[in-house]
Design a protein around this nucleic acid. Structure first.
Lengths: 137, 137
DNA sequence: CAGTATCCTTGCGGATACTG
DNA sequence: CAGTATCCGCAAGGATACTG
């Protein structure tokens, strides 16, 4: 699929979108832009079925509050499954749903692409910031 | 490339990431989650080189302020080129850079995927919300 | 251990008015 | 026309303490 064809298809799709679909699309992408969501998806993709604390250990910097909130969001979006062994000493495990695994499969090429092009991003930014500095001394 | 291989590759890549690379990756994805950024990229992908007002017309709901801000951000990220004809009656045109076009090419399959799975997302959400309601009457 | 409950700061996104 | 300058509400994200 070349560029023009791709744009044409996306144009057709976007035109056909109901307001609901468009809202959903934006919502999914907004969640994807959240601080921890994609990191959790990646962690679960790599680690399989993990407990709350195990995820926290693998994700340097996340607070309990944000981890719980993000997991709830992912669960609500159907991307993560929550398994609550109803024991007296709490035991809860999380894992990717099928939908979550497929989302991860969609995201990974994007991550790889971003990393592959990291230099171009940085270079563009430096050029932009320098131009700003020269314009406003 | 199957799922396991993909995860393995992404794992290797993420392990090799410097803090800078990781920050950059997250930043790009955060910007992608912003309200207008991807819409602008799509608009420019479809419409080619457009003036500020032309973009605004094609993007129902965006304010001057947010359009300018988003364009600046995209320009800073090297995704959009800004052409300022220095005339007395201001004339500025924007278009996707090569990097921007390639990002769009990365995003379109993701959009299509989200739309294709819209029902699954909605279904998951309804199930989740119902479970919540039952748990807290 | 897996959460809630508070409180706080920050920045996004929007509305409106003004300028070269 | 293509912006800037202000002011504002709100939600994201974080720090800390507490609970079943």
């Amino acid at each position: 699929m070349d560029m023009d064809e791709m744009i044409e298809r996306s144009q057709a799709v976007c035109d056909a979108l109901s307001d609901d679909d468009d809202g959903l699309k934006r919502e999914v992408l907004t969640h994807a832009g959240n601080r921890w969501s994609l990191g959790i998806v990646h962690t679960l993709g790599v680690g399989g079925r993990l407990r709350h604390a195990a995820i926290a250990r693998r994700m340097e910097g996340v607070t309990q509050r944000m981890l719980t909130r993000s997991l709830r969001q992912l669960e609500r979006d159907g991307l993560v499954l929550r398994h609550d062994y109803v024991e007296k000493s709490p035991r809860v495990e999380y894992e990717l749903s099928d939908l979550g695994k497929r989302l991860l499969a969609q995201m990974i090429p994007l991550w790889l692409w971003v990393v592959d092009n990291a230099d171009q991003f940085r270079q563009a930014r430096m050029a932009f910031d320098n131009a700003q500095d020269n314009a406003r001394p």
